[in-house]
Write a protein that binds this DNA or RNA. Structure first.
Length: 662
DNA sequence: CCGGACAGTTTTTTT
DNA sequence: AACTGTCCGG
């Protein structure tokens, strides 16, 4: 209840930071040193000092971090936090764009996601001529390059040189494509993810009035994970710094978003950019035992970069990390599942005490399969989002064209669903449809086109009338394309079909189709989030990037194998290898009590090498790992689940056979 | 020329 | 699961 109590819980360093009178502050905090706690306490302190909660804005980089903070703030401050905003940079900018669109020269606009961008780049770039292939970058590469240049606020030529020098010769052609992309975006009033920030940044740079307005609603900006912010995001903060107070928290050793232009210069040069800033350091780690930190510190020490970091455990000593080595990824995954299972049934640990960290969603597949096979309940975070799966996007494309017949990107997707319609036909027809945005006329043209069933066209007419009955609209849309989708996805149609129920559920919460569509462009809910809304007891399977800021008693870091850390594709680039090191560092520092690493490859040990220019190439971070830091165990064949744990599992299942006594 | 079927390959990370 | 390349039929 009391804010003072919250502040009393802080250690002296944290307290000093949270209660500073300095206008601007930078808090450098190692992993597990209470970064989030300090931010929450800072908010509490400000409120206690009389700052209205609605003038405090907490900014984070990912949605996960934002919701984490919201939860912590609500838990700690309760009613008093009412009005306090915590959101991602994107959500914050959207709030401004929606609230005062005129200040940005906008009227109507819609947000497009990456798939839409890819479609646009695909259309502009054109197909490859088989006989005479042009070597233009692929749509994906164009999209990434464009985004990278914008997030780092660099010229195309420089971004090109850094990201894909092999295309430097085609710079002019690439520039033309991007020019065309921007023209098309503008003509359709589309904003892509980067525009959301760029539009606001540009307006802030030009308009003192806007700066004043934003300053008046956010007197205090508390920025979390500062090391992940990129130059574009800094461009949002910079114009405000004279008028508001910045409280930025970060850790350069946890910067793992270089691919999105994150730049820890934002931390390293903070003092030069904000000369009157006070710097605080939090160095006591409250999360882990010293053994876990020793290994993490060791990993950073191996680097040529001076991270100047030595995490020190407040909790003292505990269990030494352990490395398990397997012949292949299947045995590795199976062992993890069984190990968790035994901890649950034999030691009585909760499922939710365990977290399995993986590099990529792809890498999670094996673990998922093993968990399913072993009956281990889990949820996967960082995976496919429901509203990003192909079949749901197909469905949404129909809703989109009905809500806005001028959305030719959605038309493209919708039209290509049908047999006999490819990119070219769809593109031609969609251009014709733009000329007649009346549903009646559109229906006529679709009928003449002859490749779409009459029934579907009829349903579309009905939908156009029903825009406010969101759930009915979605139900109709499903009817309209169900047969075709069943054919398109015949292999796993059964699995996909189930997702439409979830879409209906989500849709029912909205009053307008357009509102429903917009809400989830920026925040596509993940499937397991919907399925397991209640916090039931499950193991967490998570990508390292999603795991930042979280912690768990027992952490498994899977696939710590040569060629993975650093990933083979990063070899040879010093910056990329260092980012890989930080990714692994983030993974290691999630563990509270026990850290378990697993890897494959019994015999192949890549050694350190030197590249053509004589620079050191890191081939595997764990090469020189010693047994003082980490014990190792080699498994030559799969461990079988012990008879005892199998028995206990059966018993506990039997317990559930009774009637519901409630 | 277009689209579709099939086979083989290749998966980072997020807004 | 998504992307790529190739071949074939309209």
């Amino acid at each position: 209840m009391s804010l003072a109590a919250l502040i009393d819980e802080l250690n002296p360093q944290q307290k000093q930071a949270a209660t500073t009178d300095a206008k601007h502050s930078l808090v450098l905090a190692g992993a597990g040193c209470g970064k989030t706690k300090t931010i929450v306490a800072r908010a509490a302190y400000l409120i206690d000092q009389g700052v209205p909660a609605n003038q405090i804005q907490i900014l984070t980089f990912t949605r996960r971090a934002a919701s984490e903070i919201v939860a912590r703030v609500e838990l700690a401050l309760g009613e008093q936090a009412k009005g306090l905003r915590a959101s991602t940079f994107h959500t914050f900018c959207m709030y401004l764009l929606r609230r005062i669109p005129k200040a940005f020269g906008l009227e109507q606009f819609s947000i497009i996601d990456r798939d839409d961008q890819l479609m646009m780049f695909r259309l502009i770039r054109g197909r490859d001529d088989k006989k005479n292939p042009n070597y233009l970058p692929k749509p994906q590469e164009l999209c990434d390059l464009y985004s990278f240049a914008r997030n780092t606020r660099q010229k195309l030529s420089i971004a090109l040189e850094k990201q894909m020098p092999e295309y430097l010769a085609l710079k002019d052609q690439i520039a033309d494509i991007m020019k065309e992309y921007e023209a098309r975006k503008k003509a359709r009033s589309f904003l892509d993810y980067d525009d959301i920030l760029a539009v606001v940044a540009a307006a802030l740079a030009q308009s003192d009035g806007l700066v004043e307005y934003v300053s008046s609603i956010c007197r205090h900006m508390l920025v979390d994970e500062m090391q992940d912010t990129n130059p574009l995001q800094w461009a949002l903060l910079e114009p405000l710094k004279e008028h508001i107070s910045l409280f930025c928290v970060g850790d350069d050793a946890q910067s793992i978003y270089g691919f999105r232009g994150a730049d820890f210069e934002n931390i390293h040069h903070f003092k030069e950019r904000v000369p009157d800033a006070q710097i605080f350091k939090l160095e006591k780690n409250y999360r882990s035992t010293q053994e876990i930190l020793d290994l993490s510190n060791w990993l950073l020490d191996q680097s040529e970069i001076k991270y100047d970091k030595r995490l020190d455990a407040h909790r003292g000593e505990g269990i030494k990390p352990k490395m398990h080595i397997f012949p292949n990824e299947f045995d590795e995954a199976k062992w993890i599942a069984i190990d968790i299972k035994e901890r649950h049934y034999l030691n009585g640990n909760k499922w939710s005490d365990h977290m399995v960290l993986v590099r990529s969603s792809f890498a999670a597949r094996h673990i998922e399969a093993a968990c399913i096979a072993a009956n281990v309940p889990y949820r996967f975070i960082g995976g496919m989002k429901l509203l990003e799966t192909a079949h749901v996007k197909d469905l949404l494309s129909l809703l989109r064209v009905v809500a806005n017949p001028l959305d030719d990107i959605a038309w493209m997707r919708f039209l290509t669903l049908w047999n006999g319609v490819g990119d070219v036909g769809a593109s031609k027809l969609s251009q014709q449809l733009l000329a007649e945005p009346e549903m009646e006329k559109i229906a006529d043209k679709l009928e003449k086109f002859g490749k779409i069933p009459l029934e579907t066209i009829l349903i579309m007419k009905q939908m156009a009338v029903l825009k406010t009955e969101v759930q009915a609209c979605v139900t109709l849309a499903i009817q309209a394309i169900e047969n075709q989708l069943a054919e398109n996805y015949k292999k796993d149609w059964n699995r996909r079909q189930g997702d439409f129920e979830l879409v209906k559920q989500l849709a029912s919460k909205h009053a307008q189709v357009s509102e429903f569509l917009e809400e989830y462009v920026l925040d596509p809910v993940s499937i397991s989030e919907i399925e397991r809304q209640s916090d039931i007891d499950v193991v967490t399977l998570i990508t390292i990037h999603s795991a930042k800021g979280t912690e768990q008693k027992v952490c498994y870091v899977a696939n710590v194998t040569p060629g993975q850390y650093p990933h083979a594709r990063a070899q040879g680039s010093f910056d990329d290898v260092e980012e890989e090191r930080r990714v692994l560092y983030v993974a290691l520092t999630r563990a509270q009590d026990e850290l378990i690493l697993t890897k494959q490859n019994l015999n192949h040990w890549a050694r350190e090498t030197v590249d053509e220019q004589g620079r050191k190439v890191e081939s595997y971070f764990m090469n020189d790992l010693t047994r003082n830091l980490c014990t190792m165990e080699t498994h030559y064949k799969t461990r079988q689940q012990t008879v005892k744990s199998a028995l206990i599992e059966r018993q506990s299942i039997n317990l559930d056979f009774g009637i519901d006594l409630d």
